[in-house]
Design a protein around this nucleic acid. Sequence first.
DNA 1: TAGTGGTCTAGACCACCCC
DNA 2: GGGTGGTCTAGACCACTAT
Lengths: 238, 238
Amino acid sequence: MQRSSGTPLYKKVFEELKSKIDSGLYKMGDLLPSENELCKLYFTTRPTVRQALNDLSNLGYIVRQHGKGSIVSEPKNGLGILSLKGSTAGVGKHNLKTAIITKPIKQAWPESFEFELTPEEKEAGSIYLSRLRYVDGLPTLFEETYISNIDLPRFTLHNLEKNSLFETLKNYHDVEVKEGEQKIWAIEASKDLAEMFNIKAKKPVLHMKRRLKTNKKNLFIYSFLYCNTQDFFIQDYF
Amino acid sequence: MQRSSGTPLYKKVFEELKSKIDSGLYKMGDLLPSENELCKLYFTTRPTVRQALNDLSNLGYIVRQHGKGSIVSEPKNGLGILSLKGSTAGVGKHNLKTAIITKPIKQAWPESFEFELTPEEKEAGSIYLSRLRYVDGLPTLFEETYISNIDLPRFTLHNLEKNSLFETLKNYHDVEVKEGEQKIWAIEASKDLAEMFNIKAKKPVLHMKRRLKTNKKNLFIYSFLYCNTQDFFIQDYF
DNA sequence: TAGTGGTCTAGACCACCCC
DNA sequence: GGGTGGTCTAGACCACTAT
């Protein structure tokens, strides 16, 4: 089976199992097929299916129990916006809607930037956009994104209301998001932020600064997130 | 080599490499020995060393670059208290000191508890302790811990100032911490908390509620953490 | 071209859980 | 006892990086 298409087999297994859980085909408490059964289903071997199952376990979709099997977990109550592994943000059983506050525009990098930029990035400048995300109708997540403006022709023309940022990057520009790093603080909401979130100024807000690598050298994605944790919380497995 | 002692070989490789990085034997920018060289060093095969290298990569100790090698990363500025993988909290290049605020005492579970308890746990009651942790001398982390009081004879007698909680559990009670789940909020500091942290009340504080599994059935560790992010931040890799 | 990490095969033994 | 996941062996081919 050795990777005839471009995507690794373990990712395919991961995606299929994930979508079967998301769609409710496997419900909470169900046992997934055993590793050996999955091997037969996908014509592969245990290390490969184990890589997929490990990823599912890290995202909290399953719990693996020695001697028993892989048990499907309860849908999350929280927002799985930590530990995103290249895929789009997970919001568990909640609905996510996105409003573009600032359409993508080319601009120079901010004067002082949290992360160190390579000379090539500085030279190329950035593409900036900002989005407000509603969870179950409540404004919960404000995200400012800077992308190194490298090899992204006509990027500012995309309609990001309909398509996810990561999917747009992958489908139109062959950019795949890989690993990343993030820093987290609790801060006071600024006046503008409080207004967006419909809370009082100076209320606590969760703040994240994040740097994502891609498959392109020098092309990074920087995200500055603000999360209102009055109504929701962030959830994470490890 | 097949596990003569109790600990898996990949963990041994992980621990040795980690300590060589921590001690400065491998410095930032250095290349670790290649996977094949590590295989020879530890008389094992690639999947095993890869498991160790993956764990190091997830903790931000190294960056793995295709075609080049495993590059030692810069020591973290932030606190690695997310994504602890069974080991004790990582504080990067900072110093950590711990003061016991409440010595371990047996008590019933609180009336309303964030996590669901098994009947066996409810029956057994809990052991409670609380600690204040100083990072570089600054009070930064307040941690309340509840442990299911199952098979932990004379636990309340331990001196936890000197020994880490996880090591005590492992060495004296054969309890190993495994995977976990955590929830995160930004909240206002209570009066007591603000006093401990030497900040004003109602200032934003990062709050985590965490449930850790162990190798013993029904024995869980619950941690309620409060982190002052005025001087430090939390850092995470994925 | 040589060496690296990324993916994968085809087996194996063990510890743990359930019946 | 039979099946499960946890760990491990001993190879293989591929894609990427450096030279």
